[in-house]
Write a protein that binds this DNA or RNA. Structure first.
Lengths: 195, 195
DNA sequence: CCCTGATGTAGACAACGTAAACATAAACTC
DNA sequence: GAGTTTATGTTTACGTTGTCTACATCAGGG
């Protein structure tokens, strides 16, 4: 399909850019990601990316959207298991894609125009809520579950834990213990608590 | 003290820079903070800041350190109250200084050379642990408490909640509910909230 | 076959971080 | 107090970046 062809038109820049961006993102961090370097590595001129992304922020936003989709998928896969399993999947995604996860919740992102963020975020949130099985009036339980995994993800990503807690051997165990401190996780599985 | 004097030497640049940086940080976000603009607004040449900060990262790190000290102070003030009160103070700090809080946990920060981060962070962590009153063997409870407030802070800062949950009127109430889902907060030395 | 729109290129501009060479003023020494 | 040293601020310079504009190239439809 793609041997020599035209040499002028790339074919599927946009995708190539996103793929290259994804790599440098995890290697260099979000701040080390430049459009020009991206173009250079992809073999196009520095102006080319602007045919596919209105701005650097726009590329970042596309990356973040990709991330939300993947996270959504990870959660969907665990939909029919326990709340704990979902939380562990959530944290696993964050730890495997640290820079991407950080980017997804970066305040710099233009969250206004495509409401992709509120959409994907609220979809994940709803998925979580279904799992918590709470009444609609009290979403504090769902929010607590989300906050717990979100916070633990950030702590792990940023390596804020003392060394003795970071033993990768016992990490899954630690995560499970932490998630266990949520009262919802205990009375799990269809139990409705009366307020 | 400072009427005319020399006009050449600023007097206490460093502090002025930090103060100006603090302002622009919350107004423009971390990415909108440039050394040159800072120097401009402070009335010095664009090379001057380098006499006080080795690099932009260095300035950011100084800001973050400042933030950790203030957060530490906020927590120390609530040391003798309930775990919930401490959590609320933590979240209050984060919400009042959103960009600073984000910066404090930014992966871009050079956390290696001055271990200011691990120091301040672990100090706060220890303060928290004292409050949870758990055995040293199991720090999962402490970690859960930290993760919960850290996560909720991020969610509030980034405005990830649906509008109906963001009613500023009911926000303190919501926060309290969320913190209440931590099992440690319940069996806690009979501390009552004082309204 | 030309024309139109999509895509890539080339050049320009301002802003930035950072370093080096220089200027100034304060501190210290005698 | 004169002279030297040191801390602090200025200027100039360089390379990189995001982004805009004018231009080039190509694919597809009338």
């Amino acid at each position: 399909m793609s041997s020599k062809k035209s040499e002028y038109h790339h074919g599927d820049l946009r995708e190539s850019l996103l793929k290259a961006a994804r790599e440098t993102l995890e290697q260099e961090g979000a701040s080390g990601l430049s459009l020009r370097d991206l173009a250079r590595r992809t073999g196009v001129s520095h102006g080319a990316p602007y045919r596919h992304f209105a701005s650097r922020q726009d590329l970042l936003a596309a990356l973040a959207a990709e991330g939300f989709n993947e996270l959504s998928q990870c959660l969907r896969a665990k939909e029919d298991t326990s709340l704990k399993a979902m939380g562990e999947a959530y944290i696993a995604f964050a730890v495997v894609n640290p820079s991407l996860y950080k980017l997804m919740f970066s305040p710099e992102l233009d969250r206004t125009k495509p409401q992709f963020l509120s959409d994907s975020a609220s979809e994940a949130f709803n998925r979580l809520r279904k799992q918590t099985g709470r009444a609609d009036q009290d979403q504090s339980g769902t929010l607590a579950a989300w906050a717990l995994v979100h916070g633990l993800s950030g702590i792990l990503i940023d390596r804020l834990l003392a060394k003795e807690l970071l033993d990768p051997e016992e990490l899954p165990e630690l995560i499970e213990s932490v998630l266990g401190h949520l009262d919802i996780a205990k009375s799990n599985n269809g139990s409705q608590k009366i307020d």
